[in-house]
């Protein structure tokens, strides 16, 4: 069998030599190791002040996007819930009334949209499944809570703010390749959005 590392040593039950039985050379060796670590650069990240650097495609807290006019993109089709391997997503669909065109992009929208953050495994399959470019994973962390209830995030925590300056940037996860893939005829209804990316 091939060895996994080159560090493997065959254990031998030989008698220890006098030098080894004195232990003092070994102890001094150990002391020098700890002293070297004493002066090494520390690996601690002091959390609230410093944050760990994230990968550009980090998958964190979800966001429900709005379109250019500020209307919610989600149409409550349920594909994300079906795609979710952890079954963390639930939603209740509703029909758009007259006068609500500015709020919801299509005739059907999600009245309730909940993600259980304790179930979610942040795999990103929901954004892959979404035909409306509505759900994305961002580089934000999911905040902690004392009770389980607090981890079921509804639309109040998921939908991005209406204000144009406060929109959440997902361009890193929505690269050109993704956009190109979504120009496929079956996603034709998204062309307006994807064209703007090109």
């Amino acid at each position: 069998m091939q060895a996994l590392t080159t560090r493997a040593k065959v254990a031998v039950n030989k008698k220890m030599s006098f030098k080894e039985r004195m232990y003092i050379p070994a102890i001094l060796g150990g002391l020098s190791i700890t002293l070297r670590h004493f002066f090494k650069k520390k690996v601690t990240i002091q959390y609230p002040e410093q944050t760990r650097e994230f990968a550009p495609v980090y998958r964190g807290h979800h966001v429900l996007k709005r379109d250019e006019n500020g209307a919610e993109r989600c149409t409550a089709c349920g594909l994300c819930a079906v795609a979710c391997p952890a079954e963390a997503i639930t939603m209740v669909a509703a029909e758009r009334k007259k006068g609500e065109e500015a709020l919801y992009r299509e005739e059907k929208y999600a009245a309730v949209y909940e993600i259980n953050m304790l179930r979610c495994i942040f795999c990103g399959l929901c954004e892959e499944a979404c035909p409306k470019e509505a759900i994305f994973l961002t580089d934000e962390m999911v905040l902690t809570d004392y009770a389980r209830k607090g981890f079921v995030h509804g639309k109040d925590k998921l939908v991005e703010p209406m204000d144009k300056d406060k929109r959440i940037d997902v361009s890193k996860r929505q690269t050109k390749e993704v956009a190109e893939f979504k120009t496929h005829p079956e996603f034709a209804h998204n062309q307006v959005y994807t064209k703007s990316l090109k």
Binding site: T34, L35, H37, F38, K40, K41, K42, V43, T44, Q46
Partner: peptide
């Protein structure tokens, strides 16, 4: 502090 430094940590600060 010494324990932390030897383990590449910062210790109470």
């Amino acid at each position: 502090k010494v324990a932390a430094f030897m383990q590449d940590r910062l210790g109470p600060n």
